[in-house]
Design a protein around this nucleic acid. Sequence first.
DNA 1: AATAAATACTAATAACCGTTAGTTTTGCAA
DNA 2: TTGCAAAACTAACGGTTATTAGTATTTATT
Lengths: 196, 196
Amino acid sequence: MAKIKTLANGSKKDVILKNASALFRKKGFKATSLRELAETMDIEAPSLYNHIDSKAALLEEICFGVAKDFTEYMNTIIGSKESAVDKLSKLIRFHIQKIYTDFDNVFVSNHEWKQLSKKQLVEFLIQRKAYENAFVEIINDGVKKKLFKTLHPQITVLTILSAVRGLEFLHSHKNEFSIEILEENMVQHLLTGIIK
Amino acid sequence: MAKIKTLANGSKKDVILKNASALFRKKGFKATSLRELAETMDIEAPSLYNHIDSKAALLEEICFGVAKDFTEYMNTIIGSKESAVDKLSKLIRFHIQKIYTDFDNVFVSNHEWKQLSKKQLVEFLIQRKAYENAFVEIINDGVKKKLFKTLHPQITVLTILSAVRGLEFLHSHKNEFSIEILEENMVQHLLTGIIK
DNA sequence: AATAAATACTAATAACCGTTAGTTTTGCAA
DNA sequence: TTGCAAAACTAACGGTTATTAGTATTTATT
């Protein structure tokens, strides 16, 4: 009989993915070689192929993994009966928390999706667009219910998503602000700017 | 006597820089080859070296060119006697205008500065930090003069800079919104969120 | 201890990279 | 037309890349 598991606590593949994510973030996907990645786990580059399909597959897993996380959370929000204000607040907080707890993956997904193969790239953009549309719908709902000012939902979504995305840059001085203070400030700034 | 100019309207080097900027934006610096760049002007890759020093030098010129533009504008703002609100408003509008009128260069500067050589990278980060500090000072001044709410200036600056940076993503549907509407919406959103 | 699967290794591949050297062509000035 | 510099070309360089093939070694179960 075959034995597949290599370690009790997480497979070797997971370790590779984690190290790949860290390297891709620091140096970029193209600028990271498999030799370099292998070195982080003290093996030779060709040995990686006992666990992975290709370098490109690593990027796919990272990008679509992050996309899935955001899409799933968005679905729970959409299904809830909360106000548009509460939905928006929760989404903003989720973005902040994700960047804090899953920094490398989120960063790589945001920066390196262009390096996906043609087919994967198309699929990625479709998912991204769907997420954005769901976001726009929440804003639209808030405008209809007179909770928000009259504004351009698309521009507003872009402003909010871009603002939270920028937390990437806080990584170097992460310890200066607690995540709670960060959430409070940004939700305050971004929501009071549009609430009536 | 020597003749240096190749074209009446802008040197050949400028054309190379422009095409390089466009390619670096679309594919990334590492993913763009000099052969590919040469192809955009129907010459062979080695011929580029009659005009440029190296591939790395192209990225340098792009990144530091953009940095200079922003730094220079910041200096005129700092020197003015306007209120912190007006200063902030003008800076936000400048960011939006720059992305509109100099998209490729701004994008490349924002995304590919990590690929600068060690020495240039250090210098780039110094300039970036100085720009950020000047921004923070304006916010601080506004807080002191009771124009703004009590808030964390650094988080506020990060939020604003990130938000305007996100306009990169509007490039694909640039024609949906005029730059005036865009400016109005974003200034409104980002300023009323912090003004008392 | 024996067996078999998982996983490491070395060696080698073809492709591509930025860049240099050396040479030819081009285009303008005299 | 001649001369000269600017700028193109071809050929080739050393280096690096992801990946494959084939083989040895480690690991775990029987």
